[in-house]
Each structure stands twice: as structure tokens, then as C-alpha cells.
Design a binder for these strands. Structure first.
Lengths: 203, 203
DNA sequence: GGTCCACTTGACTGTTCATTCAACTCGGCG
DNA sequence: CGCCGAGTTGAATGAACAGTCAAGTGGACC
């Protein structure tokens, strides 16, 4: 069940996931990845044509991990759909906290770092953001008439993503969780007002 | 009054501002800057000890330009403090639009790109974000009793920054303004509900 | 036991990077 | 006129970079 004996390609992707999250794509050298994965350059280039293909594999693994590695642990023991949204935000807060505000959302960092019109990479970045937004949107749908019916669920989910990414950006820059918390508190206030204005308002 | 005959250091900072905004700091080489500024490496290193000092000068110039270059044009003809907030967001939207969603907020991009604990740079990034937030906060203060008194103005201003930065991130990734617009629309809805709940509610 | 091939090894290549430096230009000043 | 030094020139430097490759290794299959 455990000790899956990871092969070289998996070790490389795993090491690259950590390094790209910590230092970004451009600032991570192939040599860095090889050192962290305890591999040789020939092995990397046997498994991946270029460094960019390592990034593609990393983004694919992030995408595959959204439900099992991100949402599932964040939502353990939380069934209320609105509370699930704030539980997910709390998970990012915890990540910031244990890394002293230096590690945030790797997808967001990479999305702002990668500038060239580089179709497979941008498509995977977009897919990751979309999956995140759709998970929030599903919570909003599950909240049903606890929210006013005229509210655009997709747009509200995109606002939640902005609160998370913008909060991470400010927290990292200020090396403080204060602005992250303030953004979440403002979002909480907004949700309170939405629920107060909804047809199905009960505790 | 015009044609200020920019000296070499100014040309270098100006070129670096454009390039750091377009391609980021790490992906912009000193040679790129020299080419764009039509200067030689010796001139750059005569004016700046290292490439990072060019970044510091760029961030300082961004900071100095917030009021005259960003807020003043965005707020021309807009006096209502709440509308000024949305006018500022509209200005970023316009910037995204004319660059086909590729150019966003250079401060936000740099804030997520720079990872090392590099005090002068991070201090200037934080100062830039702070100045932006304080400008929004001043609008919220000016709105007076059109907002509920219990609302945390600073926290709400940080939410506005998150909406902008998160919207830019999503717009760049999707190469579409839709998610930016949706985030702003959700914020607009929130402001509508806040103003409806405020003591001094009038058109 | 032989053949095959997926995978590994690590030295190597050519390029690009930030940075250096000796030599130069030229306006100002005594 | 002669000299000074702020500013400029661009070739040179060595480190770091992504990517290549000839030579291996070892398990699987006949």
C-alpha cells in the first residue's frame, strides 16, 4: 500500500513540482531538478523532450490532484457548501502560515510568470484555474436558495478565486497574513449579506 | 516643457519598466534592457551596481507614478468616491484590452515572481501595494455614511486589490476579459448591498 | 546464453547570462 | 592649452544554462 518505489520520471515531476512552487519555473534550473530528484540529465531528457514538457507534466499532476489532494482534505468533516468555500480558503491560509508566507498557490504564480503564448502550458494553467472555480461554483449551486437566485454563481466563484490569489499575493509581499485574513473577512461579510437577502434563509 | 532629453540612466529605467512588465524580471536579460535603451553595458553598470538595482529604480519609479500616472488619469472627470474605485478597475481593464490580455499589473507579477528574501525589493513591492490600497481606502473614507460604519475600510480596500489582481491573473490565463468582468460585477453587487444597508443611503 | 531495448550515466557542447575593464570622449575649468 | 573626471564604449570573462550523446547496465523474453 505504501512505499510505491517511484520511478525516475515520477521523482523528477515531484521534485519539479516542489521547486516550481518554491522558486518559479524560470528560476529553477534543470540542474536543480536533477539534484532534488537524484537523477541525471540523460534520464530527464529520456522521459521529457524539453524542460517545458516537465512543466506540462507538473501542471497535469496538479490538475489531477485537485480533487484528491486539495479538496478532499480541505473538506474533511465539512458538509455545509458555504463553509466548504471558507474551509478551502483556510487551507491556503494554513499553507501560507507553515511556510512563513512564502509558499502560495503554485498555479497562480506560474500563471503570472509564464508570458509567452505557449499553448499547452496556458491551456493547463487555465484548466487548473477552471477546475478550482468549478469546485466553488458547485458549492454555490449546492447552497441552493440560501443565496439570491439572481446571483451569477460562476462570477461569484471567480471572485472567490480572486480573493484567494490576491490574498496570497499580498500575504507573500507583506510576509503577513493580515491582508489575506482581511480579504476573507470581507468575503465572509458579503456572503452574510447574500444569505440574508436569500429566499431560503435559515441558520 | 516637452522633449526632456532623457539621460542614459533614465532611458535604462524606462526600458526596464516596459520589459519587466512584459516579460518579468528573470526573463529580461541585461542585454534586452541595453538594446531597448540603446545603451552599452558599461553605462548601465556605471549608473547601477547590479541588475537588481535597476529593478529597485523601476519599482521606485512605479511608486512615484501611482498618483500622477495611474490615479489622476483614471479619476479624470470622476468625483464620486465609489465610482472612482470602479474607474480605477476600468483602467486596468482597458490596459488588458489593448494588450490582448497579456499585460496586467507589473507590481503584482513581480510580487509573485520575486521569491528570495531580498529586503529592498520586497519593501518597495509592499510600498506599491500599500499605496494602491490606501488610495482605495481614501475613497471608502470619502464615501462616509454611504457605507455601513461597522465595515473595515482597510479590509475592503484589500479586497478591491484582490479583485483587480485576481482578475488580471485570470484574464491573462484565459486570454479573455470575462472573468475580470465577472469579478468586478460581483464586487459591484457587494457595494450595492453595502450602500443599501448604510445609514446615509441616497442616490 | 543470447539478444534486445528501456533506461541510465556523466562528460560534453554551444549559448546566453550578468558583470568587468581598459581605453576612450568631451565639456568645464584654471 | 592642459588636465580632470563623469560618462561611454564594446570586447572579454567565467559561470550557469538547456540540451546532446556515446557508452553503458540489467531485466525480460526466446
Amino acid at each position: 500500500m505504501s512505499a510505491p518505489i517511484p520511478n525516475t520520471a515520477d521523482r523528477i515531476v515531484f521534485a519539479a513540482m516542489e521547486l516550481f512552487g518554491e522558486k518559479g519555473y524560470g528560476s529553477t534550473s534543470v540542474a536543480d531538478i536533477l539534484r532534488a530528484a537524484d537523477a541525471n540529465s540523460g534520464s530527464l531528457y529520456h522521459a521529457f523532450p524539453t524542460k517545458q514538457d516537465v512543466l506540462v507534466a507538473v501542471l497535469q499532476r496538479y490538475f489531477d490532484g485537485i480533487a484528491p489532494m486539495l479538496l478532499a482534505p480541505a473538506w474533511e468533516g465539512v458538509t455545509d457548501p458555504v463553509e466548504r468555500i471558507f474551509a478551502l480558503l483556510a487551507r491556503y491560509r494554513g499553507l501560507l502560515e507553515i511556510t512563513d508566507c512564502s509558499y502560495g498557490c503554485p498555479i497562480g504564480s506560474l500563471a503570472l510568470e509564464i508570458h509567452e503564448p505557449d499553448p499547452p502550458v496556458r491551456a493547463l494553467l487555465a484548466a487548473n484555474l477552471d477546475a478550482w472555480v468549478m469546485a466553488i461554483e458547485a458549492c454555490l449551486d449546492a447552497a441552493g436558495d440560501r443565496l439570491p437566485p439572481e446571483i451569477d454563481r460562476r462570477g461569484l466563484a471567480q471572485l472567490v478565486l480572486s480573493v484567494m490569489e490576491g490574498g496570497v499575493m499580498q500575504a507573500r509581499t507583506h510576509r503577513s497574513l493580515d491582508s489575506f485574513d482581511a480579504g476573507v473577512a470581507a468575503l465572509r461579510d458579503y456572503f452574510g449579506r447574500l444569505q440574508a437577502a436569500a429566499p431560503g434563509k435559515n441558520p
